[in-house]
């Protein structure tokens, strides 16, 4: 049962074998090609495997609904492939912390340092969500301020 296999993998305490997860997602999609979790999982597995162009293709193939569910993943793949204008467009009005981090990194890479500084100021004024995030914020804010 491919769906049960995928569910079990995703419930595991740690996920290290992203090829295995990708295979499990593809197995689900073979019989259920619009399964939202399997589509989302495939995109994340491709990002984990540094296959950013394949992730963008998977997102395009998945349609608007997948694009909405995977806004962070799409923005991140665009950022990693240097499609900064497209990423910026997608990140307009970013409200979640993950999206704000991508937006700040896009702004930094595009040398829009005022935008990056504003985003890091916002992120710094709100509660952190991840262990080590305060340190990341401090380092990245310093990099922006050094420009």
């Amino acid at each position: 049962n491919p769906t049960a296999t995928l569910t079990t993998l995703l419930r595991g305490s740690t996920i290290e074998d992203h090829e295995e997860v990708l295979k499990a997602a593809n197995a689900v999609l073979k019989s259920s090609k619009s399964n939202p979790d399997a589509l989302h999982t495939r995109v994340v597995a491709l990002l984990q495997l540094d296959r950013f162009d394949d992730a963008l293709r998977a997102l395009d193939d998945g349609g608007d609904k997948l694009g909405e569910a995977c806004r962070l993943e799409k923005a991140y793949a665009l950022y990693k492939t240097g499609k900064l204008a497209e990423a910026e467009n997608l990140l307009q009005g970013a409200d979640k912390r993950g999206l704000k981090h991508v937006a700040a990194q896009v702004a930094y890479r595009a040398e829009k340092f005022e935008d990056a500084a504003r985003l890091y100021k916002e992120l710094g004024s709100e509660p952190v969500a991840i262990e080590g995030e305060e340190n990341d914020l401090r380092i990245n804010s310093s990099a922006v301020d050094a420009q």
Binding site: L10, R11, G98, A129, I139, N140
Partner: peptide, 21 residues
């Protein structure tokens, strides 16, 4: 070139394991 971290990466997670909903 100053140090700059890929902080956004930590937010990428599989469905059901998201850092934030």
């Amino acid at each position: 070139k100053p140090l700059f971290f890929d902080a956004a990466w930590n937010y990428i997670e599989y469905p059901g394991r998201e850092v934030e909903k």
